[in-house]
Design a protein around this nucleic acid. Structure first.
Ligand SMILES: [Mn+2]
Ligand SMILES: [Mn+2]
Ligand SMILES: [Zn+2]
Ligand SMILES: [Zn+2]
Lengths: 137, 137
DNA sequence: AATTATAGTTATAATAATTATAATATATTG
DNA sequence: CAATATATTATAATTATTATAACTATAATT
């Protein structure tokens, strides 16, 4: 069965309770078209323009936040200067190459972390992020 | 033997090849006076002013970067809006309470991570950061 | 100690990512 | 097709950080 990116994106937005506007549909297609992605607002905006989608940077920011709120994206904090958004919302970890700004997934299934203390009293666990920082050699 | 914060800070700066100026001495005393600390530039600047040290925010930023370069501090990336500096330069991990912006150390000794894939070809490991995100409950 | 050179500090301006505003446009509902 | 609710956009504002360049302090030299 061939993928039908248009209706797929449409359903995704409907399920999230977001109006399927031209701009959101275009972004959803760019984001979920093939495989998982890690993007910044600027990158995604440039991609949309390159694909001749007329969209403002403000709308890209708005959409990234709405998608995140809706559980369609999650944010990954690795660089103090840019915010990355990840289409993979399953628990998993990352390689981060600081020089290129490239993120790469590490499956959460295989990784296990032992020896962590219990969370401080009065707090609850929200999530665990493992960032493996690497560089060219 | 009682601690002698003044000469301790002085030696620390000398060892790092940094001139022991009034400002850097004051920051070193605030940072290494007692126990490990995680600070932002704004926080440290406010502390210095509260301690009646006349110092500009620019110098706090400069000093934090110089201390980091000298291995006296390391940066911890947990919040896309602020840069944290850590006086604990041993390999270790963190609890991060996003609402308060408070970081707390997790000893690196006890924690072990298994199941991580090898680093991608052409790259070398720089470090592994584990951030345990928690929230009040 | 005085002089000169080097390095550090600071007020201020610039930068860059992100967020807010408010006018305009689009989508949904009846 | 209205009427209403929601979304988009150009633009301005915000905020943390960094750059600039004049001034000051420290260190080295005489
Ligand atoms: Mn920012
Ligand atoms: Mn910033
Ligand atoms: Zn990912
Ligand atoms: Zn720490």
């Amino acid at each position: 069965m061939a993928t039908r990116p248009y209706s797929e994106s449409l359903e995704r937005l409907r399920a999230a309770g977001l109006r399927p506007t031209r701009q959101r549909l275009a972004l959803a297609r760019l984001l979920y078209g093939r495989g998982h992605r890690h993007v910044t607002a600027e990158q995604l905006h440039a991609e949309a323009l390159a694909a001749t989608v007329r969209i403002s940077l403000a709308t890209v920011y708005n959409s990234l936040h709405q998608f995140t709120e809706a559980g369609m994206l999650r944010e990954v904090v690795v660089d103090p200067a840019r915010r990355y958004f990840d289409t993979n919302v399953e628990p998993h970890h990352h390689f981060f190459m600081a020089t290129d700004g490239v993120l790469q997934d590490i499956s959460g299934k295989d990784v296990s972390i032992t020896g962590l203390p219990a969370v401080p009293a009065g707090t609850e666990l929200q999530g665990i992020d493992v960032i493996v920082r690497i560089r060219r050699n």
